[in-house]
């Protein structure tokens, strides 16, 4: 094909229907809704969620997952856009990381050492890992779909970031049910689940995010 002929073709397809930003935000909104409905029909919300959310541990758990979801999504959005520096978004991930460290240290300070292990294991560690993974399926699908419209430099890395953001979004949703409130529990099982989703994202990205 002559390059001129190709240009002819491209000019006939000039308008852009949906920009990547728009696709990305829509994907998050829709998948978050799907994930939330999935929580409602499987586990349901925590009893007296509103009162519980005013206790420091629950507020910390919800706040931390929301913060990680926001900062993680920012990285995912930027990694899809060529020429946009990633560094500020990566540095912002230090916020949830620092919050987690502060939460864990405070918990260790106020809880007697004998209670550390039961706090860490909690009541439903396996359910936490299982449900955070399950609830991340919709966001992961949505974010991979959105990033397929984008142009990430490294497909596996972009997939991993999509996984991180999806795991964090799923963690936000699961936190509305989760009866285990210790920061030690959150630091262990929530992070384990998010790490799992991040690895799954990397594998998917490697296959699906090439362009």
């Amino acid at each position: 094909m002559q390059t001129d002929d190709l240009i002819q073709l491209l000019t006939k397809d000039a308008p852009v229907k949906r920009r990547f930003n728009h696709v990305f935000v829509t994907a998050i909104a829709v998948s978050l809704l799907v994930s939330f409905v999935l929580l409602l029909i499987t586990l349901g919300l925590r009893q007296n969620l509103l009162q519980a959310a005013q206790t420091p541990r629950v507020a910390f758990k919800i706040g931390l997952t929301v913060l990680l979801a926001i900062t993680g999504s920012q990285v995912a959005l930027r990694i899809g856009k060529p020429g946009v520096p990633l560094r500020p978004a990566l540095l912002a991930l230090a916020l949830p990381a620092a919050a987690l460290v502060i939460g864990v240290v405070s918990e260790l300070a106020v809880v007697p050492a004998a209670q550390w292990e039961p706090s860490l294991v909690g009541r439903y560690p396996a359910a936490c890992v299982f449900f955070v993974s399950l609830l991340s399926l919709a966001p992961l699908t949505g974010l991979i779909y959105a990033l397929r419209q984008a142009a990430p430099e490294n497909p596996a890395k972009a997939g991993a970031v999509a996984g991180l953001a999806s795991g964090a979004l799923a963690a936000c949703v699961y936190a509305l049910h989760c009866p285990d409130d210790s920061p030690l529990f959150v630091a262990t099982w929530y992070l384990a689940a998010i790490a799992l989703v991040t690895s799954a994202g990397a594998l998917l990205g490697k296959r699906l995010l090439r362009w």
């Binding site: 920009r19 020429g83 419209q149």
Partner: peptide, 29 residues
């Protein structure tokens, strides 16, 4: 290669944030 790059620029133009300068976007892609 030129043709392939043109096609990529075309298919990925929705990732250009039109309020940002075009140079870094185009150069990276």
């Amino acid at each position: 290669v030129v043709q392939e790059v043109l096609l990529a620029v075309h298919l990925k133009r929705g990732t250009w944030d039109t309020t940002r300068p075009i140079g870094p976007w185009l150069s990276t892609i």
